[in-house]
Nucleic acid binder design. Structure first.
Lengths: 224, 224
DNA sequence: ACTCCCCTTACTGAATACAATTAAGATTAT
DNA sequence: ATAATCTTAATTGTATTCAGTAAGGGGAGT
């Protein structure tokens, strides 16, 4: 009767995907850096086959460029691309939120809030940046799910994995945390009140503001 | 001096991807149908390795579901998903077009028109449906490229490969061709006149109208 | 009859081994 | 010296082979 957690056997490919994704997002592997199959295989104690499959998958996520016979490199995002990605997110996500708000149940709001609490705790405890961004997307996803747009949500998540490394930069270096916390709280409140207009507008600004401070940061980095 | 077409060696993986994609889009492989690696490998005279890599790639494109240890199946889209995909396309593409129109050069318009002529010719000659949809996306892409939003364009193309099989259905069974031709011509004219407002509105309707006739078609098919 | 367990089978997942491609250095001819 | 060609080393692409997993099908026990 009890819901059995049906023993999940992670394939080696999945392990490699997760390891590489984390290394790229964390900046451990830099943009443009070539990814040698044998090196990765050795490092993770697998053969090259799962490494190759992982690279194909990561290319689809946009984290890797895979050129036949040349090899794979980690992608790097330029300032223009950051702007593009975030503007696209702003458009799609505010649309999602608008569609979601009328469908949000009390339970959804409670769930979202509990994720938010965990996120704030993670900020306070200065846990790993990785867990910040995971909880962050969990929070947003909770709100969007009620829109009943699974495919759109997938697209958004795809865009997010691309933005992630920059969001991490922002949180780490621009002191964006208090602002983000405040905005999240207000956003949740607006959702609770079903104020579609204000909520979507806040979300837009939230995303575009982040884009702005990131582009400034990236420009600085390029100069230095 | 002449630009050498630097002999492109297609990998077997790419061949398999193309073969399978075409079979799925054309409906030759139906939604839900299991894709046995060995069968495909044998059929295409390759080993299972490139087949596996191809399946991973196609999963990223949304044409295939890949469950560990269970195998891959062709995805099938429901009516709701069709609606979702097309509404998303309408939003993103009209935004793209709005951003593109001010940047369109005379040359862009000429190029687009020439693609359009080819497309109309393909319709007349009743060439393969595959070439129709290829030329169709080429036409739209030409218009969108001026928006300078490469990543957004990629997203759109991704959505399109998912919609493609349904667009083909529509063109084949609902006599949508004359309408499509007319709308394309008008759209091009509006772009030439830089009428952003009307052009984006037409595009929205163009896409949503297609969605509508497709959902009707799919519902019929389900009943029969 | 029903349920549980083992076992078989058909498939997928991964390692090893081999072939093909690229690019860089060496060699030769102009 | 320079350009073109050959050679070779590094790396990727693919076939073969072995290992592991997941369902389906009897039998034994209840």
């Amino acid at each position: 009767m009890s819901n059995i957690p049906p023993i999940i056997h992670k394939t080696r490919t999945q392990l490699v995907v997760e390891a590489l994704r984390e290394q790229i997002l964390s900046g451990d592997i830099e943009g443009g850096e070539p990814l040698r199959q044998s090196a990765i295989a050795e490092q993770l104690n697998v053969s090259r086959i799962p490494v190759r499959e992982a690279l194909v998958q990561l290319e689809a996520e946009g984290l890797v460029n895979f050129e036949p016979h040349k090899g794979a490199t980690a992608t790097k995002l330029s300032v223009e691309q950051v702007t593009e990605l975030f503007e696209l997110r702003a458009m799609i996500e505010s649309d999602l939120l608008a569609k979601a708000i009328p469908n949000l149940t009390e339970q959804d709001i409670i769930d979202a809030e509990s994720v938010l609490v965990q996120l704030e705790l993670a900020f306070k405890l200065k846990e790993s940046v990785a867990s910040w961004s995971e909880l962050n997307t969990r929070f947003h996803t909770r709100l969007y799910e009620a829109a009943n747009r699974p495919h759109t949500l997938e697209v958004v998540n795809g865009l997010n994995t691309n933005c992630d490394r920059y969001i991490r930069l922002q949180l780490l270096f621009t002191g964006g945390i208090p602002t983000a916390e405040r905005e999240h709280r207000i956003l949740l409140e607006l959702c609770k009140n079903r104020d579609v207009q204000k909520a979507t507008e806040l979300l837009r600004l939230h995303i575009l503001h982040a884009a702005d401070s990131i582009t400034k940061l990236v420009e600085q980095k390029i100069k230095s």
